[in-house]
Amino acid sequence: MNIFRLAGDMTHLASVLVLLLKIHTIKSCAGVSLKTQELYAIVFATRYLDIFTSFYSIYNTLMKLVFLGSSFSIVLYMKYHKTVHRSYDREQDTFRHWFLVLPCLLLALLIHEKFTFLEVLWTFSLYLEAVAILPQLVLLQRTRNIDNLTGQYVFLLGGYRGLYILNWIYRYFTEPHFVHWITWISGLVQTLLYADFFFYYSQSWKNNKKLQLPA
């Protein structure tokens, strides 16, 4: 494990904690896209099936359990917790997210490293993760008042992907057989989707103003 990956994982963990803090402590999910959260739950459920088949490290297994548990509990909170559910921006969160699932599945069936059940699902999870943030970005654009926690959540999530790219560059040069085009391209696409958000986030930070995305 290199420093970029550890930093990436920790940033990812921090993003989840920020979101849980908002939902659990403030009992609000205003500005948070349930569609994106549902997609992440599917992403982790399909990617981490290898919990049952292979063991890498205690760290690896623990983190997988944390991401699985947190993504499903966030979805359940938003759907079924009375107070949290009331703060959900249902009218604004209208992205047709299920339309992302089928193309990702088809793409995974066509383009993968190995044609096995677990490998195709794993590839599907990479493609889906790349686009899972879209409903959240659309919702942010429609939300007039983006609160700090929601902004930080998206910023940390984007930061995690950026750090993973550095990790892949590092691994490419230090591990002789580490070449994974599918992972890299979907990771790059995912990071690029944040470019616009990062720009406005840094502007608001620099000018010490509230974050607002142009319509």
Partner: peptide, 10 residues
Amino acid sequence: EETENAHDEL
């Protein structure tokens, strides 16, 4: 030899 897979990542 086999390519090291990326499954050790999260």
